[in-house]
Design a protein around this nucleic acid. Structure first.
Lengths: 349, 349
DNA sequence: ATGAAAGCGCTAACAA
DNA sequence: TTGTTAGCGCTTTCAT
């Protein structure tokens, strides 16, 4: 125990256990080739001295740079673009921590394509590396994830979870709660104008996050704002042209439409339809993800509220989780919980 | 330049500049006693090699543990209690980064007392240490802060800024925007019930954050919800007994009261008065800070929305900023921006 | 199965 | 004013 800080070091543990530093290192990092008896001695010493490895020293001594690969949906979705930007922005931090990130495109709407890409990617990764996957919940995908995990690669699901898999962590929000939040905002913002219909536009009901949001939305609308009728959900495939057409149809067919909730992407299309109809200010419009377009539409009053998950927070969280598997640094659960942000025109960052 | 990572090191810079590592270290850390000509050579070499110090190595070599002292208002305010908890929770992280935090109590409502404590504290700190101050904006306080800064101690204001001072950073939210946000929520939640009055309870108008919130609230109410009349603000001194009495009076005197906005603390008192009056569900109640009480009142429906600043985020942010002054690690502005969180019963963490 | 020893990139004490 | 050098607490060969 050195006298400047009373923190135990590797060599303290080694002395206490009566072995060499190399052996302690082997035990701590679960490297093979140590007698069970020795393992016991070392772990005992660790307990007794309340030893915690110094991450800075470890990082300094570690030679290899670990890889963190993000598998993101291809296409022009602006939220995904924000994730890409955040990955780039965190390069200096990663360099300081001896990890390197790469982002790959996949057609995330095709489960078999995604599953194949996961496995291809996995083949290039070694134990200690991490794959961060954003894609749909499907048996093939689940199987691919489990296969990766078995090889010692870390797997983190992002934004949309694959809960039945053996992934190490999910970084994203509780989408049912997000849908409920959207419902409360929608219902209360409608205020006096109750008694009409509310339109529900999703990307695809096959996407877990969209389905969960719709579910939460329906729950709260039915329970607490029963005077407005929820129309059958329509699928906009996260495409602005398509959502614009769908929104225009909703507006045309329902003169008493009081609100639109968009659980997926393509919100610019909906905003455009709303503006064209001249009813942008009387129809409440709530959607997800604070993209540059959403920002503008919030300020113009076309959108009334945006439910957001912070892309920067998600990327940093995924990186910290990936790192913590290497360094065994404790993760601060509190800090890694992604919040369901609500943005109005007044609290934009 | 070593061949594993192509990142330049201190000794690369030393060679490039034709000086020793110690000299480069002196220049980088702005230590005195280096010829101007030499400084030039070194900074040039740093530029050419695009050198960035390795924070892990620096941290490992640094002997001294730097101090970060929090000066927090005494009393039983639960938000302040949350800050204290977060400081404690981050101890392991701090230890890993060779910094140590202490929290001190001050009577923050007495500017001269606060100013004196700042100076007393400053006397125990040395250059490189940091003081984190939460207190009122007052000339005496400003002067004390400036004096500390002059001695090389870092100063960060927390929650309530002292903008005219030389403090290195402010960690907290834009309170005018927070007040505006509260107004939009209040106004829109009132919905059909317009035409009544809204009560405004603050802790003290002498507190910068409370005054700013009121200001923002008034702005938006007047501009966008002119049909409800804002009553003259009353001061609850952040004390639940007092706010309860004030709220009860508001309710008694204004049968058409449609909402209460509380810009300060003591929200439990207001909730109690609301519940006693039997009008908890018809009067919209918006307040600040997601304390355990606020959580309960949100779930019970007595509170309709809570505007929050994340105590954990604020503490971590203050710590990272304190550290970055030592390590010159770049600060990720994005990550340090404290958000104006909106919580409804549905998106509670 | 275990140990010895050479760094990793900095800081700081001491020399010159 | 500048340089030399011994660590900081780990990881990682290479021996044994």
């Amino acid at each position: 125990m050195n006298e400047l800080s009373n923190r135990a070091t590797l060599s303290d543990v080694a002395r206490e256990a009566g072995v060499s530093m190399a052996t302690v290192d082997r035990v701590l990092n679960k490297r093979p080739g140590v007698h069970a008896r020795t393992v016991g001695r070392v772990t005992d010493a660790v307990q007794r001295l309340n030893y915690r490895p110094d991450p800075a020293a470890a990082r300094l001594a570690r030679q290899r740079t670990h890889r963190v690969c993000f598998l993101l949906p291809s296409g022009s979705n602006s939220f995904v673009a924000m994730l890409r930007e955040q990955i780039a922005d965190n390069r200096p931090w990663m360099e300081d921590h001896r990890i390197a990130a790469q982002a790959f495109d996949v057609d995330a709407l095709e489960p078999q394509v995604l599953a194949r890409r996961i496995l291809e990617l996995g083949a290039t990764l070694v134990a200690g590396d991490t794959a961060v996957v954003m894609g749909m919940d499907h048996p093939r995908v689940r199987a691919a994830i489990d296969e990766l995990v078995a090889t010692g690669v870390g797997v983190i699901t992002l934004v949309s979870d694959v809960p039945s898999s053996r992934r190490h962590a999910f970084v994203g929000i509780d989408n049912v709660a997000a849908g409920r939040t959207a419902a409360t905002l929608t219902g209360r913002f409608c205020g006096a104008r109750k008694g009409g219909e509310v339109g529900l536009i999703v990307g695809s009901m096959a996407l877990r996050d969209h389905a969960e949001r719709s579910f939460g939305f329906n729950q709260v609308m039915a329970a607490e704002h029963a005077s407005v009728r929820i129309l059958t959900p329509v699928e906009g495939r996260d495409d602005a042209r398509r959502t614009e057409r769908l929104a225009a149809e909703l507006l045309a067919e329902h003169p008493r439409l009081v609100a639109i909730y968009s659980a997926g992407a393509g919100n610019r299309g909906i905003a455009a339809a709303l503006e064209d109809s001249g009813r942008a200010n009387e129809v409440v419009f709530v959607g997800h993800e604070l993209t540059p377009d959403a920002r503008r539409d919030l300020l113009s009053g076309t959108m009334d509220a945006v439910i957001n998950q912070d892309a920067g927070h998600e990327v940093r969280s995924a990186l910290r989780l990936a790192l913590s598997r290497l360094t065994q640094e404790p993760v601060h659960a509190d800090q890694e919980r992604i919040r369901i942000d609500i943005y109005l025109k007044d609290n934009l960052p």
